[in-house]
């Protein structure tokens, strides 16, 4: 009976934490105004999200052992994020186009690539993440790394202009009327590779 109680207690704590993660995810969607709920709910949802986050120790200092313990456990159990895939709506997708400027004045176009389909899916997932506001501080660094991975295959390239943008998909009706997807540049970075300097510009 003692062992059963321990198992039951563990299950209680385990599902309490998972519930907190899931509830925080739902509240976050509502608070960000991404759902069909009226905007009057936004502020309540933000409070709810904060409450759920505080249950997970996210309001504590980053070095707090309780916060770290909860984060480690949730990561180990694969439950650190909610289950809001493709929800509430399917986001648009993004593309990174690299303009390769050669020493002799030639310009070629390329994109970061991988060999297998499974890895390609992950690369697309990374590009979609880069568009999120939370990834703004990392954007330039990651784009630089992706540009560098392409440069390794084109060593005689002098400069790379990385253009990151969203692809606007046509809706069903638009598609029927002949409209096709269009590329909307969001920002671009210039990387000068010969002299190891880079400049960036945001559009």
């Amino acid at each position: 009976m003692g062992a059963k109680r321990i198992y039951a207690a563990w299950a209680g704590v385990h599902f309490f934490l998972i519930a907190a993660v899931c509830v925080a995810g739902i509240f976050s969607l509502v608070a960000d105004g991404l759902t069909i709920l009226p905007s009057a709910f936004d502020s309540y949802a933000r409070k709810g999200e904060l409450a759920a986050a505080s249950v997970l120790g996210k309001e504590m200092a980053a070095s707090n052992p309780v916060r770290r313990g909860i984060a480690t456990y949730l990561d180990a159990a694969g439950s650190q994020s909610g289950y809001t895939f493709f929800a509430p709506n399917v986001p648009g997708y993004h593309r990174l186009i690299l303009e390769l400027y050669y020493h002799d004045g030639r310009v070629e176009y390329d994109s970061p690539h991988v060999s297998g389909g499974a890895a390609a899916l992950r690369l697309d997932s990374l590009l979609d993440r880069l568009a999120e506001p939370g990834y703004e501080p990392l954007r330039e660094v990651v784009v630089k790394m992706l540009a560098f991975s392409v440069w390794q295959e084109h060593r005689d390239v002098e400069k790379i202009r990385a253009i990151f943008g969203s692809v606007n998909q046509p809706g069903i009706r638009d598609f029927e009327h002949g409209k096709r997807e269009s590329f909307q540049p969001l920002f671009s970075f210039d990387f000068s590779l010969r002299n190891k300097e880079n400049q960036s510009t945001t559009r």
Partner: peptide, 29 residues
């Protein structure tokens, strides 16, 4: 938990009610 919260989040999006989200998810690379 997975399906309840996944389903709830989908129900809160307009695109799942009119088929837009299925179209978008199946036409995007």
């Amino acid at each position: 938990f997975v399906y309840f919260f996944g389903g709830l989040a989908k129900c809160l999006g307009s695109g799942w009610w009119d088929g837009t989200n299925l179209w978008r998810s199946m036409t995007r690379p």
